[in-house]
Design a protein around this nucleic acid. Structure first.
Lengths: 239, 239, 239, 239
DNA sequence: GATGAATGAGATTTCATTCAT
DNA sequence: AATGAATGAAATCTCATTCAT
């Protein structure tokens, strides 16, 4: 009986916490961090404003909790995903889909906004490197890194890639284009197509280019061309 | 004399406008749109708050003016840049450098923030497509598109690329990685290296692989030769 | 005990609300709606500005609350009054006294001002007919109407009166003259005298004029005079 | 030449003054005294804000100038009116029509508002009695008083009337009911009907009842006869 | 633990008025 | 005489946070 009570009350606490986080996520997504007042959040969560602060202390801490949850889910689904397929290419496609889906389900241009917001808010977190948001993001992108490293070890992709650059292209590309997808409803096919379009060029650049033998002469030609072009431009200007 | 007077007073107005825009840009960059109060902005610009509103009407309008200025410069320097070199690869490197330099000089993660902010602020601009910020960004990315299209036409790069995806990778990759560069001071060499690392994989994926080995360079040589011949003719005439 | 506590706290809320309303009424009366700042009102009520808005939301809502209270009292005392006497004339005198007393106690030229103000503020209430103030006033003047109708039914006054015109004369007359009374302190005798002076002419016009025997010849003469005068005027003009 | 110049410039000054007054009247009527900014008024009048203050010194002074003009016209048309007819009743009808027309043409619930506003604004004019608006109103209502006194002297109406009360009923009744007429377009017939409805009860209460049976009509007949005789003489001359 | 009344600092914006030109 | 840029005080309202109950 006591145990049940305890369980119940703990469950009730957790439920309330979840309610608040849900409401806050929804409202942050709608109106942005500054646009969503704690009063409104509390009302939508069905608790008093006092309770909200009782649970989370500050509005920033509430945001942080949301991001923790968000990244936890993101990381979990990403991990599950890559264990379900073997090939590097398939895994990248899966990571990309997972990423986009998570962002869009959370109307997450706004998640991005918050992310950026926090990273910029130097009054709050003095430097990005040590900000909690950076830590979370780091943990998350490590999954991508590991997929890539395994791909290199197994010889699926070139070993002379600059990992950080590819990572930037991967996540940056996905998110930059997402704005175009936003507004429209979440749609599995469209996402799949978009993900392919983003991953395909990256994938090609990851292949070992052993096949292109003409490197030597080509490079020479290339350089000569550039020099000639520069001269041409200069001449055109002066004439 | 009167004319000088007139000039002076006009210049004074313009100077004040510029002062306000400068101060606002700085503070928005430091603290974000909501974090920078108009009072603070006015103080930093050395004018009264009344004057600020005399010039810009609303805080949003001030932000808009900043973005207008920012994009105007961005577009101008981008245009100048691509006219100074001929090859697609060189042009892309130049666009990338220009983009990063502009963003970093303006501590522009925050510019990005605003961009995202506005696009999200659905209470303010009901739909992203018609928002002023979208228009500006569209005009800007057209420059990239044109470079790519010309590259395709001249055979420097594959014609079966999905332009929008490459564009997303290009700008998204640059901006995603920029956060790592931020905080540190603007540094020409580091930027150049970073830009190469981002552009290189993209460039490789743009090449027609193996199947069309020599096409590129040959055509390019041809064209350069033609131009040089034409210039030679002109030079012969003028000299 | 708990009940008392509850009562106390509820009473405290009500007390605060009453304090704010009192202060606002006083200041609106002194300086008009625009002339009384929320800051000043809050200070006079002994609460913070935040609290004022916590209770009433907007300044307009505060004004509305005042008017609601004011009319509620006005209506209640009017109803009580007419039930305490029987004759139509006595009832009218009572209504008039009640009206004047309420207005003067509330320094209510200003109440009138607000009333007019609101009805004119077409930016706020687009049409007078549906404005809250009109509704209140309508409910209030219905009391007068009912007294009159009953008087007609019972034969105390003529039945061919145009009710709306008499109503306008009654309330308009009272309020127009009130300005003269204002400034001086509330004074029961003076008010009684003034009320008599206003009601007496109206009362006479309400009597069935059967008593005036000479009506026949007089009216004829009267009409002839008017006709002749009109002709005279016309002739003067044309000549 | 100089004189012409002077005339021109004086005319131009007067024109500007009139422009400002017109614009201000319109805007005050639309939005109330506080709702109409000097900036807007200046813009609508086609002058600079500086000029507005150059002419009128303060916003309150501008309002005062408007009221001066307004009452001047009101008084003039009232005087003209009562000279055009002879009978007391006709004169009262005429005064009433003139009053209503002037108010409605100026959307003048608002004129009334200002009037009340000023009289209440004790921060501005410490006491109503000495306020300029009171002076104006006093001069205006004197016209009514004179009509009444003449009517008494000539025996058209009872002499035991309390003039101030009748005056309050007359103007108060007209203005109280005016709100009902507002909103609808100015309409001659409706106004005439309304005026009759207001004046009729007052007129009845002014009649000497029973006690002074024949006094009035006789005198009146005498006078009309005299006038008709005079006109007859004139007509004989002209024909 | 939960509440919600209370706060006061601060936000954006408006406005009548001044004054150098 | 005319301008309109400049001002700074003040206005309404919002908000995250606290604290007594």
């Amino acid at each position: 009986m006591t145990k049940v009570d305890k369980n119940n009350s703990r469950t009730r606490l957790e439920q309330r916490e979840a309610d608040i986080i849900d409401a806050a996520t929804r409202l942050f997504a709608d109106a942005g961090f500054h646009g969503a007042s704690t009063r409104r959040i509390a009302a939508e969560a069905g608790v008093s404003e006092g309770t909200l602060f009782h649970y989370f202390g500050t509005k920033h801490a509430l945001l942080q909790a949301i991001l923790d949850d968000f990244y936890a889910q993101l990381i979990e689904s990403a991990r599950e995903g890559i264990e379900s397929v073997m090939g590097t290419r398939e895994r990248l496609l899966l990571l990309a889909k997972n990423h986009l889906r998570a962002l869009m389900e959370n109307q997450a241009l706004m998640m991005r906004l918050i992310q950026v917001y926090l990273s910029v808010d130097i009054n709050y977190y003095k430097d990005y490197k040590n900000s909690p948001i950076h830590q979370l993001n780091y943990r998350y992108t490590r999954i991508f890194d590991n997929v890539m490293k395994e791909g290199m070890e197994r010889g699926y992709i070139r070993e002379d890639l600059q990992l950080s650059a590819v990572r930037d292209l991967f996540f940056g590309g996905l998110e930059y284009g997402m704005r175009t997808l936003m507004g429209r409803k979440y749609n599995k096919e469209r996402i799949a197509a978009y993900v392919e379009a983003i991953v395909e060029p990256l994938w090609q650049s990851m292949q070992s280019h052993a096949v292109t033998p003409h490197a030597g002469p080509d490079e020479r030609l290339d350089e000569v061309c550039s020099r000639l072009e520069r001269i041409a431009v200069r001449l055109e200007k002066t004439s």
